[in-house]
C-alpha cells in the first residue's frame, strides 16, 4: 500500500501542461498535492496531515547522522539460504531479486556515526528488503552493532521496520530473537543506553524482541506496531479492528511507547535523549 501516489488524473485536470509527469504527488491520507522536491525537503511527511510515508535505511541514516561521519560495517553480509527453502519460488531467488531491487544485501544496515556530535552505534532496518524480515543476517548484524556499542561505550540506536521473522529461515530466524536479546542483556549490564525508533510497520518477532527492549522507546506518528499483524487478528477474532488499533498513538496510550516524534524532530529529540543518559567510560 503506497502512502504517496503519483497523481496523473488530478494533475491532468489542473496544470498538466506546465508540469512533467511524476513531479507532483498526492497524499493518500488527506489528498493534499505536493511538489516532489517539497516532499523530500519535508522528509516524506505530509505538510497538511503529517502522514509519514515509508522511507528506506539510506534516508534514516541521512536524517540521524551528521554528514560525513557515517561508517558502515558488514554491508557485504548475505544470507546463504541454510534450509534451501522453497515455497512457490526458491528463497535464494527471492534474495537475489531483493538484492537487485534494493541495492542492499539484507534488511538491516549497521555502523557508527555522530548525531549532533554524539558518537553512536546505529542499526537501521529496511522494509523494502523481504519486508524487513529478520533472519540470520539481521540477527548477526544487530548483535555486532550492540556488541560494538558495549565495547566502545557508545549509545546504541535502532530504527525498526519489519514484518517479523524471516519464515524461510524457520527456527534459525526464531533464534535471532534470542540471540539479539542476549546481546541487549549484556549491553544493559554494561549500562550503555539503548534507544529504539519504531517506524511503520514494526510487527512480529522484531517487536517481540529488540523492538520492545529500548531504555527509551520513540515512534513515528501513525506507525503500525504490534505482535500479531492486523489480518491475523481479524481472522482469529472474526471482527473488524477498531480505528487506530496498533498505531503508535494506541501504543503510547497503552503504555508501550515513550514518545511519538515527528520525523522532522527525530534527530533533535534523539540528541536530547542521549544528552540526558550518561554512558560509562570504557572499562567501567
Amino acid at each position: 500500500m503506497a502512502w504517496w501516489n503519483r497523481t496523473k488524473k488530478n494533475i491532468e485536470d489542473q496544470q498538466q501542461r506546465e508540469i512533467p509527469d511524476g513531479l507532483f504527488l498526492k497524499c493518500s491520507g488527506c489528498g493534499y498535492i505536493i511538489y516532489k522536491r517539497e516532499l523530500e525537503e519535508n522528509l516524506y511527511t505530509c505538510p497538511e496531515c503529517s502522514k509519514h510515508a515509508r522511507i528506506g535505511s539510506e534516508e534514516y541514516i541521512e536524517i540521524l547522522i551528521d554528514a560525513g561521519t557515517w561508517n558502515e560495517t558488514d554491508d557485504n553480509m548475505v544470507s546463504t539460504d541454510p534450509l534451501e527453502f522453497v515455497d512457490q519460488h526458491p528463497y535464494s531467488v527471492k534474495l537475489e531479486r531483493a538484492q537487485k531491487k534494493t541495492g542492499l544485501n539484507d534488511a538491516i544496515r549497521i555502523g557508527t556515526g555522530s548525531t549532533n556530535g554524539i558518537r553512536i552505534a546505529l542499526a537501521v532496518m529496511d522494509f523494502s528488503f523481504v519486508g524487513g524480515s529478520m533472519g540470520s543476517v539481521v540477527g548477526e548484524k544487530f548483535t555486532r552493532a550492540a556488541d560494538l556499542a558495549r565495547k566502545e561505550r557508545m549509545p546504541f540506536v535502532a530504527v525498526t521496520a519489519s514484518g517479523g521473522a524471516r519464515m524461510m529461515e524457520s527456527a534459525i530466524s526464531l533464534m535471532q530473537m534470542a540471540k539479539t536479546s542476549v546481546a541487549l542483556s549484556q549491553l544493559a549490564d554494561a549500562r550503555v543506553p539503548y534507544i529504539t525508533i519504531l517506524t511503520h510497520p514494526t510487527t512480529g518477532g522484531v517487536t517481540a524482541s529488540f523492538g520492545m527492549l529500548g531504555d527509551i522507546t520513540l515512534a513515528e506518528p501513525g506507525a503500525l506496531i504490534g505482535f500479531a499483524g492486523p489480518r491475523v487478528i481479524e481472522q482469529t477474532i472474526k471482527k473488524r479492528l477498531p480505528e487506530g488499533f496498533q498505531q503508535s498513538e494506541f501504543l503510547q496510550d497503552h503504555g508501550f511507547v515513550d514518545h511519538i516524534v515527528h520525523r522532522k524532530e527525530l534527530k533533535e529529540t534523539l540528541t536530547r535523549v542521549l544528552g540526558l543518559l550518561p554512558v560509562p567510560e570504557v572499562g567501567k
Partner: peptide, 26 residues
Amino acid sequence: GAYPGIEAEERGQAEAIARNLIEMAG
C-alpha cells in the same frame, strides 16, 4: 502460538515476550 487478540495487543504481547527473552538471557 501467543494469542493474537485485541486485548493481547492492548496489554503488550510483544513487550511481554521481549521482556522474558532479555530476562531469560541473564
